[in-house]
């Protein structure tokens, strides 16, 4: 009887402690993420502009920003660019990350520490530098890439215009593939090797080991990596912005959706419309994340 009460108290103390553990993080999230998000959603239902008469005399206009966005041909143009950009980035970043992770965890290749450091280099170098570094690479006449191409007797390419979207994807993947690598390596190395030893005893095939041990154990980080990559790609327009500037190209070749929202909110100063696009992005991310989570069975 006494020990039961004691146990009950202990369990509750434990649960209470655990609940208290969550409070600070949730508080910070609510103050600095949830409130601004709700605020932004509210703005998206108004015609607020940052300058002009609409700053002081804005009004609630319901869904009109969203209707306007969906009936705007530029919005769909931008969506097409976004789809291409995000899909290509997702695949390439993940594949490169996987390749790098396999190199680091395999026993065949020498100098793994140095390799790991090199692979991580672009990721740990701050983004503020990337623009200038890549400008020196891609310039048509003096850029390093074209100089290498010419030295190899290959025709130089117009990286800054004709292949601009691809260039931006290349920069994005360069800067970001190490994230996938990092999570995958951590996941691979955290699988207890006893699992493999046991299955070796039973003479399991490599495929069986991969399917029954590796995959289930790295599935969770795998899905998380995909979500992280996707979120970063759709959210971050640094590279697109630096090759576009304050006005989009006439054919919107670099206008990924986040950049479109930015141009609307801060070049045209139509904050309400820009926030509506921002919310549309959030909904897309939301849906795709849910699909990925469901597929991962998490």
């Amino acid at each position: 009887m006494f020990s039961e009460i004691k146990n009950w108290v202990r369990v509750n103390v434990r649960n209470l402690t655990l609940t208290l553990f969550m409070i600070p993080a949730l508080a910070i999230l609510i103050i600095f993420q949830l409130i601004p998000t709700i605020w932004t959603i509210w703005i998206s239902f108004t015609d607020m502009a940052l300058i002009g008469k609409k700053f002081l005399n804005y009004s609630f206009i319901g869904l009109r920003n969203y209707i306007e966005a969906f009936s705007d041909s530029y919005f769909w143009l931008s969506m097409r660019v976004t789809l291409y950009y995000c899909l290509a980035s997702l695949v390439i970043r993940f594949m490169l990350g996987l390749a790098a992770a396999l190199y680091i965890t395999s026993k065949k290749f020498k100098g793994k520490r140095i390799m790991a450091a090199v692979f991580l280099l672009p990721y740990i170098i701050p983004g503020a530098i990337h623009s200038y570094v890549w400008l020196s690479m891609l310039e048509t006449d003096y850029g390093t890439v074209n100089r290498i191409l010419v030295a190899l007797n290959l025709p130089p390419q117009s990286w800054m215009y004709e292949r601009l979207t691809e260039s931006i994807i290349a920069i994005n993947c360069w800067a970001g593939y190490a994230l996938a690598m990092l999570v995958l390596v951590s996941a691979l190395t955290s699988i207890p090797k006893e699992y493999y030893e046991i299955s070796d005893i039973y003479g399991a095939s490599k495929w069986f080991k991969f399917r029954k041990i590796t995959l289930p154990l790295i599935k969770y980080p795998l899905i998380l990596t995909l979500i992280l990559i996707f979120k970063e790609d759709i959210d971050d327009f640094t590279y697109a912005y630096m090759f576009t500037g304050d006005t989009p190209y006439p054919d919107y070749r670099t206008e990924i959706i986040a950049l479109y929202a930015y141009h609307k909110a801060f070049s045209d100063f139509e904050l309400g419309f820009g926030c509506a696009i921002g919310f549309i992005i959030a909904i897309i991310v939301f849906i795709i994340t849910l699909i990925q989570l469901k597929m991962g069975g998490i």
Binding site: I51, G52, F269
Partner: peptide
């Protein structure tokens, strides 16, 4: 060239 818009916003 931003002046008119900024005036209307009361800045």
């Amino acid at each position: 060239d931003m002046i008119p818009d900024m005036v209307e916003a009361g800045y």
